[in-house]
């Protein structure tokens, strides 16, 4: 495993920890999109179907379990926890997330590495992950007071995607047989979606002012 990949996984892990920290300790999910969190839970459920069938490494298994458990825990907190759920900004989290699941499933059926159940679900999860951040970005645009933890959560999530691209470039030159076009193209699309956010995040950090995204 190369350094970019490890750094990517770690920033992904940090993003989840930041979000859980906010939800668990502050008992607030203000500014967090439940739609995005539900999509991530679906992404991991679809992608990690191979968890008990295909063993890669202990690291891989543990990380998969962590991402599965954390995504479902976050959804549970936002829907069921009696204090946390009251802080959910339902009025502004209006992205029609169900409507992006079906196109991703169709795309997974059409464009996959092999037409088997697991491969179709894998491709589906890759396409869905690429767009899963959209409800969160829309909610951020509509949020007047974006708190630091929410902004940091999205920042780390975006950083993870950027680092994965560096990881693929590295692997492309060091492992000649390593080519996954589906994850590369979807991954680049996913990273581009963060472009705007990164721009304003860095700007707010440089000028030491609160993050605000223009609508």
């Amino acid at each position: 495993m190369n350094l970019f990949r490890l750094a990517g996984d770690m920033t992904h892990l940090v993003s989840v920890v930041v979000l859980l920290l906010k939800i668990h300790t502050i008992k607030s999910c203000a500014g967090v999109s439940l739609k995005t969190q539900e999509l991530y839970a679906l992404v991991f459920a679809a992608r990690y179907l191979d968890l008990f069938v295909h063993f890669v490494s202990l690291y891989n298994t543990v990380m998969k379990l962590v991402f599965l458990a954390s995504s479902f825990t976050i959804v549970w907190y936002m829907r069921r926890h009696k204090i946390v759920r009251r802080t959910y900004d339902k009025e502004h989290d209006t992205f029609r997330h169900h409507f992006i699941v079906l196109p991703c499933l169709v795309l997974g059926l059409l464009l996959n590495e092999k037409f088997t159940f697991r491969e179709v679900m894998w491709a589906f999860s890759i396409y869905l992950e690429a767009v899963a951040i959209l409800p969160q970005l829309v909610l951020l645009q509509r949020t007047r007071n974006i708190d630091n933890l929410t902004a940091q959560y999205v920042f780390f999530l975006g950083a993870y995607r950027v680092l994965y691209i560096f990881n693929w470039i590295y692997r492309y030159f060091t492992e000649p047989h390593f080519v996954h076009w589906i994850s590369w193209i979807a991954g680049i699309v996913q990273t581009l979606l963060y472009g705007d956010f990164f721009y304003y995040y860095i700007l707010s950090w440089k000028n030491n002012v609160k993050l605000e995204l223009p609508a």
């Binding site: 992904h12 998969k64 991402f67 590495e113 047989h177 076009w181 994850s183």
Partner: peptide
């Protein structure tokens, strides 16, 4: 090839 490459990423 690509199709039989192990999916070792998360």
């Amino acid at each position: 090839g690509a199709a039989d490459g192990v999916k070792d990423e998360l």
